[in-house]
């Protein structure tokens, strides 16, 4: 090799200089890319991906230069790459766990798309179950992404439950059809406390609002005493055919109830 006769100081110098050159090269490339983004409206995530990729590629080039300059033996390179490989695969365990968890959720079906669910502390309608994340549209109209792996470990309340038809069909074909009919009803519950006043009075006020919202939800909202502390807490039960109805009107419903008491 040409580099055979170079002294240790020389090798060190080459490694450092190549690092510096690559750094400057990276900067120039980024500068050019930014100009492209500005002028041609390149999507931001593509830009980001290119940025990450170039950095990765440059790091690889630098490692390659170092290996050549240091004139490492083949066995050493293989040894190092095995270590690097193990590190990489161990580091990607989390990613792969997310992937496996996604498949697991899709097969065991604790919930499916368009269900109103509560996962840990997050509540919302499931809009997508992807390989890495499950996305929930929450009550604020924002999309929460929950890593699939997290979902596997947390308790889930699925407010969407299939309606078990009480009337058994005589016809065999019809009964099979019923099995595949996924008519679901969403039954969402939340707790809210009224001030400590006369019980009859509380009931009257709550009933008037529930009456009002019967048409909006399609079912009459109901409530049950939940606990007593500095307020009398009720657990409210909202029922609707479409989870989005609840997502849209729950906050209004609670506003109306709060206004009744304050």
């Amino acid at each position: 090799m040409i580099l055979d006769n170079i002294s240790t100081q020389g090798i060190f110098l080459i490694v450092v200089i190549s690092l510096g050159l690559l750094y400057i090269f990276n900067k120039i490339l980024l500068f050019l890319l930014t100009r492209v983004v500005d002028s041609k409206q390149l999507p931001a995530d593509l830009f980001n991906a290119i940025k990450v990729l170039t950095r990765f590629a440059l790091a690889m080039v630098w490692i390659y230069i170092t290996i050549v300059v240091l004139n490492l033996a083949e066995s050493t390179v293989i040894g190092l790459s095995v270590i690097l490989g193990s590190v990489l695969s161990f580091a990607s365990i989390y990613t792969i766990q997310n992937f496996v968890s996604g498949l697991y959720i899709l097969t065991t079906e604790p919930f499916s798309v368009n269900d109103l669910v509560r996962i840990g502390a997050s509540e919302g309608v499931v809009i997508e179950i992807s390989l890495n994340y499950t996305r929930l549209l929450n009550f604020d109209g924002m999309v929460e992404s929950i890593p699939n792996k997290k979902i596997l470990g947390s308790s889930i309340i699925n407010y969407d439950q299939p309606i078990t038809s009480t009337s058994k069909s005589e016809n065999f074909i019809d009964s099979i059809k019923q099995q595949f009919d996924d008519t679901e009803v969403t039954k969402y519950t939340f707790v809210w406390g009224t001030p400590l006043i006369d019980y009859r009075n509380i009931i009257d006020r709550l009933d008037s609002i529930c009456e009002e919202y019967q048409d909006i939800f399609g079912y009459r909202p109901t409530y049950l005493p939940y606990t007593i502390n500095h307020r009398f807490e009720f657990s409210f039960i909202l029922k609707a055919d479409d989870p989005m109805t609840i997502l849209r009107h729950k906050t209004d419903f609670l506003d109306k109830i709060s206004l009744q008491f304050h």
Binding site: P110, G153, I156, N158, I237
Partner: peptide, 21 residues
């Protein structure tokens, strides 16, 4: 179940708790 245990809560919602939990 194999993966989840199903509970009926006090407000009669269905809660799924992972068996591992």
């Amino acid at each position: 179940g194999l993966n989840y245990t199903k509970l009926i809560g006090m407000d009669s919602t269905v809660i799924l708790v992972p068996n591992k939990t």
